[in-house]
Design a protein around this nucleic acid. Sequence first.
DNA 1: AATGAATGAGTTTTCATTCAT
DNA 2: CATGAATGAAAACTCATTCAT
Lengths: 215, 215, 215, 215
Amino acid sequence: MSEEAMAADEIMDGVYRALCEHGYAELTMQDIADECEKSKSLLHYHYDTKEDLLVAFLDGILADYEQRLACWADRPPAERLVEFIARFVFTPEEDERESFHLALLEMRSQGPFNERIQEQLDRSDELLRNSVADILDAGIADGSFEPVDVDRTAALLVATLDGARTRQITLGNAQPAASYTRVVAEEALDGIVDPLLAEGVDRPTLSDALEQLDD
Amino acid sequence: MSEEAMAADEIMDGVYRALCEHGYAELTMQDIADECEKSKSLLHYHYDTKEDLLVAFLDGILADYEQRLACWADRPPAERLVEFIARFVFTPEEDERESFHLALLEMRSQGPFNERIQEQLDRSDELLRNSVADILDAGIADGSFEPVDVDRTAALLVATLDGARTRQITLGNAQPAASYTRVVAEEALDGIVDPLLAEGVDRPTLSDALEQLDD
Amino acid sequence: MSEEAMAADEIMDGVYRALCEHGYAELTMQDIADECEKSKSLLHYHYDTKEDLLVAFLDGILADYEQRLACWADRPPAERLVEFIARFVFTPEEDERESFHLALLEMRSQGPFNERIQEQLDRSDELLRNSVADILDAGIADGSFEPVDVDRTAALLVATLDGARTRQITLGNAQPAASYTRVVAEEALDGIVDPLLAEGVDRPTLSDALEQLDD
Amino acid sequence: MSEEAMAADEIMDGVYRALCEHGYAELTMQDIADECEKSKSLLHYHYDTKEDLLVAFLDGILADYEQRLACWADRPPAERLVEFIARFVFTPEEDERESFHLALLEMRSQGPFNERIQEQLDRSDELLRNSVADILDAGIADGSFEPVDVDRTAALLVATLDGARTRQITLGNAQPAASYTRVVAEEALDGIVDPLLAEGVDRPTLSDALEQLDD
DNA sequence: AATGAATGAGTTTTCATTCAT
DNA sequence: CATGAATGAAAACTCATTCAT
């Protein structure tokens, strides 16, 4: 990796950790500087304002996510759909993911007040829904899925998983026994995905998909 | 209404408007003072700290929300369930509801940083999930619903609807054709509610339920 | 004096002293705060930005000067003209005046880059030239001055005195024996004012005028 | 020209343009670097500190100025004096001269804060006053001028012209009808120079002198 | 009950300067 | 020579909170 890219990455890692640690609303440039062990001035050297830095961060996150989505396009649609769902699941022990998604939720609630953040969020929503829609299209094309309205189903699935995550992050101890996202993911597989499968088509279990993600 | 209660109400309205105008992360006491056309000092006279004020505010809007939840009881479970779902639907033109839930979402994203906020959110969430669970229990008891795991189904439904709402509030123009919540509500009725209905049981359409809510 | 006016005055005095002490280019809000023994925050409470504060300061200075000019309008024109000139004279020992006019000169050189400062400077120039023009008009009207082009003579006189002051402030030890402004003031009286006097009209000496100003 | 000298010149041009663009008080090393399309580091390579750079700059522009002063010698004193005065006159359209003298004024206002700047200003001022004094001496010697106190007359003349220039540079649109310097130059010729001329001695008009300067 | 004035601690941002290459 | 990266010190400005009235 080039040196420049490394420096930029170190800063982005700093933003990530600082966001996890302090949340969006309380995040200061000093927090970020501390996390990446650089000076505040350096942050301003690379990004004119705090807002610029955070927008660049969101942009980076999304680019990463896009890349990760792109690479597993050649497996059976049913498998890909289960994996997509499994990616949402995390246990309350996974502090970092929880913290990160919490910060993201804060930024999402800030979106309506900041056009540049809004744009990134919109891009992220589109990315998610298109990912599901692509998988559904592929499945319908190869006959493994029943024909359905792809966009509406995608909207349903994304809303469900996102909602589950929001609730898991947001609620303290008032949660279902297992992790909220896991419960909902399983119900979604049973209630939404299974009716979608063509006769004779199988899908991996959630447990299998989760194990595979760990590798 | 007593004078004190009125003053408190004016302040709460100010918090609400300021939150809608600036977002939680950028919210200042001055913003709130401006919105209720009072002085900052007065806010501190009534509430020692900014946190106190926001907790009181959350208390107020959750009470509102809870009141809206608890109003129907003796109609058939299928009807009640459709109505429950319909209550989540709103168009992007309904500014007030959008604002309300945005303000609420902002507060929700602060829960993990603040125990007092957390407690209130948890309490309110219990109410919400119990509402669904009660309806499901009633339906199973009277035979209009298939027997299912009530808590898990409730979790799924609430996650789905909450997620749809969050996305609708949060996203700019990158939304599905109709309102996000409406699309998802209809898909949820088809995919989640219908399989639940016992043979021969009918349910109202979403349109019917929405019309009825308007009265 | 009302309390508010006093607070505002204390700040303005602070600006004055801070300008004298540090000059315009190096002037900080902290310097001003120190000089008036108030907090920086208070300065920002009364004036949103540093620029606002400085513009208000210039405005105040000019208002003061206008008032001072207004009050001695009823003496003979020749006397008023000499007094006007005498007001420019100061010795190198008068540190404060020197410092202040130096800061003013810095601001003047900053004028072309700042519209609001420019406006105040323009107002000041007009004020000065009009003052002289008024005196000349009065003198011509009552026959104590020969008829001349009032505006051009005023421009000449103001340029001369201002130039002398600028040089006195600006030059170190390369100055004429007496104070630069005093030398020039005397030469101006001999070369510019005296030819202006109608036959038989006398004028006070510079020394007399200077003594009178001290009272 | 050697390469080093060229580099130094480019930097000096950058300082000049940056000073014209931003004014002394707001001038940063970055501004200068931008104007000469070099890096800040390079500036520091050639000049240790910002102060060094500005002192070098002042040195350069004063040398330019001095060169322009010292060029005529053997014409009649009256002619030389009118030409000396004419050199101060410029219209508001002559941007370059305005810029030059504005930059110089900015540096002049910093003299009292910086000994090294002060010294250069003093040296340069001596040259200026001596120019006038020399002309006056020559005129008195050859009988074309009345005997006067040469130093005091020189002080008066220089103050007048310098003051006019400062005002013209410094003021926006609040100026006398013609250019400030032109009005004052003419008044100075009538009021200061003419009384100086021995009987029967003529002098060129300002217009003649200005035309001659253009060649 | 209500306010304007005041402040300390902290926030973003700026900038001359240094350093490694 | 020349640069980009990096920094410490300090700048302007913000904001929750307090206090006198």
